[in-house]
């Protein structure tokens, strides 16, 4: 909001014209109707507008209508965030890891709980028993 917007006199009209140019569409919304009414009834307004319009026309002549180059949008979009597929992958990885841990635990725990085999090492002691030489000689 500007200090000078309450009434539209020549000073305020020239002030806004200086800032925004001759096209009232660029003016503050609340000043447009007042500006148009003032321009219609003030003798000097047309000359002031004419001066501002010259600069507008010069500036508009330099308006660059060429858009961005063809591949710029593609380059920008190539860097855009991608949907997070890892949300599923992470769950799958966690499930796999849980299965692996569970499998190890079952394997280890099962081994611990299984009845120990009877300790029959007679074959061992027999194998290493000192040979008897009674029959020899």
């Amino acid at each position: 909001m500007t200090k000078k917007e309450e009434t539209m006199d020549r000073e305020r009209f020239a002030y806004l014209l200086d800032a925004y140019g001759a096209d009232f569409r660029r003016w503050p919304a609340q000043a447009r109707a007042q500006a148009a009414a003032f321009a219609a009834q003030d003798a000097e307004a047309a000359a002031l507008i004419g001066e501002a319009r010259k600069l507008d026309a010069v500036l508009d002549g330099a308006r660059d209508e060429a858009g961005p180059s063809a591949d710029l949008a593609a380059r920008i979009l190539a860097a855009a965030p991608r949907a997070q597929r890892p949300a599923f992958d992470r769950r799958a990885m966690l499930a796999l890891a849980a299965c692996a841990v569970f499998g190890v635990l079952i394997g280890y725990g099962g081994g611990m709980l299984a009845p120990a085999p009877a300790e029959d090492d007679s074959y061992f002691s027999m194998a290493f028993e000192a040979p008897s030489f009674e029959d020899e000689g």
């Binding site: 949008a73 991608r82 949907a83 997070q84």
Partner: peptide
């Protein structure tokens, strides 16, 4: 959130 149409 990765919506490519929104990015476009």
């Amino acid at each position: 959130a990765g919506d490519t149409r929104a990015a476009e």
